[in-house]
């Protein structure tokens, strides 16, 4: 989060310049910070897919219970199924099957994916995150493709139930409504994000601080949107490994370790081998 580039800077750079930016383990920690510092405004960045929404919803719920008036959230939640539909609707779509993210489904279940598999005739396999899980998920998807099936299957049965975590869903929908969301690198996708429900508007940082319309300019060389949609790989990007690296990312897939560009980078794919400095150059430059 801290390295995500804004139009002119990022949170990590601001922190280095003295801004009070803190990393918390749980959103409840942010609520605790607000409760302990009533004279300061605490803004929590409530981001992520469906997996983080129950935690963020509970933070808002707790802030309301404690009557905190110095805690707000900047909500930027995104949802998986509308993004899958957007990819499948695209004329350049090259995706033949999906591995549905296991922990998103641990929260939401997979009933939302059944109409997608049927409508677009695309296999969807709910898959865990260990290397063997991924291999089995890929195998299950390939077996569906080879036999002409298009169903939702669950590879990650040890952690995911069809209905998901109903308790978590209940809190999420008490606090959030579904609304349109602009995706970095892709653009607006209808009904693809969570927004605070009107009764929690006082916890909305965008309302409290009157930030106006936020527009983030993205780097022109970054092709994150096409990479996210599976039409390009990081190796097609002129910025990859040159202008863009995990230390200085330009787009979402390079920001966190599970992003495509970051994973390519960690494996050294397509990176020029560092030039070996000949020994005589080193000795010559010595005084």
């Amino acid at each position: 989060m801290l390295r995500v580039p804004g139009s002119t800077t990022d949170l990590l750079s601001l922190k280095a310049r003295g801004a009070d930016v803190r990393i918390v383990y749980s959103p409840l920690d942010a609520v605790r910070i607000a409760a302990a510092n009533p004279d300061r405004q605490v803004v929590f960045f409530a981001i992520g897919f469906e997996t983080t929404a129950p935690a963020n919803a509970m933070a808002v719920w707790q802030a309301a219970r404690l009557g905190l008036d110095n805690f707000t959230v900047l909500v930027s939640h995104v949802l998986v199924p509308p993004a899958m539909c957007a990819i499948l609707e695209s004329p350049t779509c090259q995706v033949q099957a999906f591995l549905a993210a296991g922990h998103v489904c641990a929260v939401m279940g997979w009933t939302e994916y059944e109409p997608i598999a049927a409508r677009y005739h695309v296999p969807i396999v709910v898959t865990g995150f260990e290397p063997l899980d991924l291999l089995e998920g890929i195998l299950m998807a390939i077996r569906q493709l080879e036999s002409g099936r298009a169903e939702v299957e669950n590879q990650y049965a040890r952690a995911v139930k069809r209905e998901g975590n109903l308790q978590a869903q209940k809190t999420v929908f008490r606090v959030f409504d579904i609304g349109d969301r602009k995706w970095r690198g892709i653009g607006m996708i209808p009904a693809s994000g969570y927004h605070l429900r009107p009764e929690f508007a006082r916890f909305d940082a965008e309302e409290r601080f009157d930030v106006g319309t936020i527009h983030t300019s993205e780097h022109p060389a970054c092709i994150a949107g096409q990479i996210l949609q599976g039409t390009k790989t990081p190796l097609d990007c002129t910025a990859y490994g040159v202008l863009c690296s995990p230390q200085k990312p330009l787009g979402a897939p390079m920001v966190s370790s599970e992003g495509v560009c970051s994973a390519y980078h960690a494996a050294g794919r397509g990176l020029a081998t560092p030039r070996a400095v000949p020994l005589f150059e080193l000795t010559r430059s010595e005084p």
């Binding site: 997996t51 922990h103 899980d133 049965a157």
Partner: peptide, 20 residues
């Protein structure tokens, strides 16, 4: 349990883990 950002979101089913 599987813990995500400080919240347990799923309890692991040992029987299903063995099947996998």
């Amino acid at each position: 349990v599987i813990v995500h950002v400080g919240f347990a979101i799923s309890q692991l089913d040992e029987e299903e883990a063995m099947k996998t």
